[in-house]
Design a protein around this nucleic acid. Structure first.
Lengths: 111, 111
DNA sequence: CCGTTATATAACTGATCTTTTATATAATCG
DNA sequence: CGATTATATAAAAGATCAGTTATATAACGG
């Protein structure tokens, strides 16, 4: 995948997340993916291109159809970045100055 | 957090991801966050507003400063959505038709 | 070969995003 | 109070994006 910009950007769109959720259930053609949306086919084709560009889906050729499926590696790579955040987050969670900062917040927060 | 659109959209920008990575090390003021970037202060202020709007960071008031810190809940919520994907992905990983699809891919893929 | 089906591409529009400069606000220090 | 520091906001320019319609490509079924 290699491109977090593209990946997160692709995930920022609800239509694309819905497409991914659908693909998580199994392979589907462009028409099958387009069906539940109130959107034209070219619009869906574009979304698929974005998802493919981000490395989130893969496609094969089957006659005139081009079935899509999830690229399992992508989810893992995003997780990896989040894990980095989460880890440092957890490491700092018990540090004294964070606790103090939290207490100050309680006192000083604007109403 | 409640808004995946805003969260993923916020994460799509490398400057904002860098800010989050910096904040994972601990609280920082706007000026401290702006320093490593070749970008004006208003630009950073805007990025922070986006991150705050997405629920990824929290801020407090300390005199004329407004120190930022990570909102631990946000990372968890994004993870949750990815976990959903990952789970269905794993569940389908061993299904026969996926295996067959994979084999077809090997045969039919365009060079 | 012809019509149909599945999908892609192009051109265009309106909206949204990033960044800049210039300016405002508001707390602090002397 | 007056200058400085920390941050926010506004206006504007340029880029990018999501969606549309219209059209192209290309495989299939008869």
């Amino acid at each position: 995948m290699a491109n977090l910009d593209a990946a997160f950007s692709a995930l920022a769109d609800p239509t694309r997340r819905a497409i991914l959720a659908r693909l998580a259930l199994g392979e589907a053609t462009v028409m099958e993916l387009a069906e539940p949306f109130e959107m034209t086919q070219p619009a869906i084709s574009r979304h698929l291109k974005v998802l493919e560009g981000a490395g989130l889906i893969l496609r094969r050729v089957e006659g005139t159809k081009r079935p899509c499926r999830l690229a399992p590696a992508a989810v893992a790579e995003i997780d990896q970045w989040l894990a980095m955040l989460r880890q440092t987050l957890a490491a700092n969670y018990n540090r004294l100055d964070d606790v103090l900062a939290e207490m100050k917040t309680q006192e000083k927060a604007i109403p």
